[in-house]
Design a protein around this nucleic acid. Sequence first.
DNA 1: GTTTGTTTCAAACGACTGTTTGAATTTCAA
DNA 2: TTGAAATTCAAACAGTCGTTTGAAACAAAC
Lengths: 229, 229
Amino acid sequence: MKITEITRQALLDHATDVFAESGFDGASVREITRRATINLAAINYHFGGKEALYREVLRLAVDALSDASLLDEVTIDRVTREEAVRLFIRQQVMPLLKHGQISRYWRIFAWETLSPTPVYRDFIASEKLPILDQAEKIVRRFLPDGAARAEITVATIWLSNQATPFIRHYDTLSKPPLSLKIDKSFIEQLAADLSRMAIAGLNARGLLGPDSIECQVGGNESFRLSNVS
Amino acid sequence: MKITEITRQALLDHATDVFAESGFDGASVREITRRATINLAAINYHFGGKEALYREVLRLAVDALSDASLLDEVTIDRVTREEAVRLFIRQQVMPLLKHGQISRYWRIFAWETLSPTPVYRDFIASEKLPILDQAEKIVRRFLPDGAARAEITVATIWLSNQATPFIRHYDTLSKPPLSLKIDKSFIEQLAADLSRMAIAGLNARGLLGPDSIECQVGGNESFRLSNVS
DNA sequence: GTTTGTTTCAAACGACTGTTTGAATTTCAA
DNA sequence: TTGAAATTCAAACAGTCGTTTGAAACAAAC
């Protein structure tokens, strides 16, 4: 590997860290170069500036999230809609295990949803984010064909934000006072729970009547009955 | 009203705006005083610094959110758990109508969940936020008594984040290409939909089996049956 | 070994940050 | 009206921000 590529890579790696931690505005080029033990001017030399570096990180983020996706164009239509939700949730929750890899990208996007940078605006203007695209496709399979644009959008935002709070609240869970061990079994459980809640929520979508009726069936068994239009 | 109170109030008001837009770090005292057309040094004179001003805004935010709450200590236990969820969701969604009032406070908390300031850490260390408190109380009514701490926390985070994405994505909805009119009927519909999804999700929580079974009953009527443990 | 082009580096630039200062102004009671 | 306290104000402080600069160090080709 050429040495110029090494510094480029180190810069990108540490930039991803800092951008994920503090957002674009909160990140400083001095902090990035300090962590990478590379001279301050390297960012402008190799990328042309802070914005261009961030653009590159966003580019990598979108690609990585697409690569790590469990839902490509083919499978999303082949599996059941419930299975599609499960895969959709899992692909967002699983990265929490590998603390420093994909989850950094999710955090960067979390910053962007709160206050989009011009760089990000350009980005989504040119190409749709795979996650929103996937969410919308899944949502459409739960909503009736004639669903209004607004209705689809609301459900899409809802679905694509089922897992994100837990990416954001990673510290809340892992640090005191909760101090949960974010291991494989916890993540699996979380993914399963979130999927179940998301599916139930999407199924309940579009109902007009009361949400559900509890039905006593046997001795201590009860069923919850909900009308699907 | 004493004139010192007028400037204090103007400072607090514009500070709330700027903190909501850019977060604590992103906000600048010069921007705040510029909007309030008050001298730069006023913040330090009246509050003692940027941090102290922010602390005051947070204080007001918590109070306002408590006042605007539809769920006081009494009603939260008197209504059905489904109704509690509906009230919980409504109190978060309704402020979207009054663009510049309570919704600013929600945005400030949104910044804090992404990267908590020391001021905010001190704040939640001394007193629990009413929203999380309420969410946990509601969640407990859906979960079995013996539910684990982790399980409750996960469900609490989930419930308290059912409405927040829409507060965050207010611009996405109201501006092009969607350009939805965020009027009373839209908000009412949104609150109803979110409530239904949240209730369905909470009901589905804790299930171990398949999520639900679709049952054909009559000609074009079908029911969705899900077991409640 | 010399040359040419690439990459690093410390230093400095102007613009911005929160805060301080001391004088000018305003307020309000005596 | 006078005098002391409260409030405003422009200016400057030290620090950080992203970026630029020109020289130093390095690489590879002749």
